[in-house]
Amino acid sequence: MGVAMRRAGRGERDLVVALLDEAFREDPVSSWVFPGEEHRRARHAGLMGAFTDITFDEGYIDLAEDGAAVALWMDMPGDPHVEGDPHTEGAPHTEDEQDEQGDDAAQLRAAVDPDNERVEQIARLTAAAHPVGRAHVYLWMIGVRPGRQGEGLGTALMAPVLERCDREGLPAYLEASNARSRALYERLGFVFTGTAVELPGGPTMWPMWREPQGS
């Protein structure tokens, strides 16, 4: 569609955070994590900043050249000790992994919004739903500026990584946070794993898995 995409650098952190804040502030999941518009405006960018910093440390961020869309990616290693097909059955997390996830979730809450247990809840729930076993690429977040949604920017931003997945035989994984994004991901070959993440008293998230596509 003629939109140039490139890898973001750490010097563009503020741009990435502002874009994610704008793209997700009215998302159903963000509205659940930070109920009340005033509270959300005060704390939401902090959560997006934490996600951005983690991704710069452990993954990579792709950005539309015009700053209208951004995607946070991580390459997840496989675990040869886990058997089964994690995208359909859900491989169990070990006790050590669960403890580590709990520590990470608690640290995220402390850093972003200490009095808000929902920050920790969503981190724990999504971590528990994340499949283990096979190496895969994880699309943590993809955001498009509200005024530019519907132009195909998200698809264009994902295309190079999905092409790499197909070329290297890698699955991909994500959690869709609303019905519109789920429909987009289904068109790109993602399939609902069958076990939703039900936020207590809030919206549903759909974990989705994509097998590498043949030529």
Results as ranks from 00 to 15, higher is better:
Met1Gly: 14
Ala4Trp: 00
Ala4Met: 07
Ala4Ile: 03
Gly9Ser: 14
Gly9Gln: 12
Arg10Tyr: 04
Gly11Ile: 11
Leu15Glu: 14
Val16Met: 05
Val17His: 02
Ala23Lys: 04
Ala23Arg: 10
Arg25Ala: 13
Glu26Lys: 07
Ser31Gly: 07
Phe34Tyr: 09
Pro35Met: 12
Glu38Leu: 14
Arg41Ala: 14
His44Ser: 09
Ala45Lys: 15
Leu47Gln: 13
Met48Gly: 01
Gly49Lys: 03
Ile54Lys: 12
Glu58Tyr: 01
Gly59Val: 13
Ile61Gly: 10
Asp62Val: 03
Leu63Asn: 05
Leu63Trp: 02
Ala64Met: 03
Asp66Met: 06
Asp66Gln: 09
Asp66Tyr: 03
Asp66Glu: 11
Leu72Met: 14
Leu72Trp: 07
Gly78Glu: 11
His81Thr: 15
Asp85Ser: 13
Gly90Leu: 12
Glu100Tyr: 05
Gln101Cys: 08
Gly102Arg: 14
Asp103Met: 13
Asp104Cys: 01
Ala105Phe: 06
Arg109Val: 08
Asp113Gly: 07
Pro114Gly: 09
Asp115Phe: 04
Asp115Tyr: 01
Arg118His: 13
Arg118Ser: 05
Val119Pro: 05
Glu120Asp: 09
Glu120Leu: 03
Gln121His: 09
Gln121Thr: 15
Ile122Gln: 05
Thr126Ile: 07
Ala127Phe: 10
Ala127Pro: 03
Ala129Thr: 13
Ala129Cys: 05
Pro131Gly: 12
Val144Tyr: 09
Arg145His: 14
Arg148Met: 11
Arg148Trp: 05
Glu151Ser: 09
Glu151Lys: 07
Thr155Gly: 11
Thr155Pro: 01
Ala156Lys: 07
Leu157Ile: 11
Pro160Asp: 06
Leu162Glu: 04
Glu163Cys: 01
Glu163Gly: 08
Arg164Thr: 04
Arg164Leu: 09
Arg164Asn: 00
Arg167Lys: 13
Tyr173Thr: 00
Tyr173Ile: 00
Asn178Lys: 10
Ala179Met: 06
Ala179Phe: 01
Arg180Leu: 06
Ser181Met: 03
Ala183Thr: 13
Leu184Val: 15
Glu186Cys: 03
Arg187Ala: 05
Arg187Asn: 12
Arg187Pro: 01
Gly189Arg: 10
Phe190Cys: 06
Phe192Asn: 10
Thr195Cys: 00
Pro200Lys: 06
Pro203Ser: 08
Met205Val: 02
Ser215His: 06
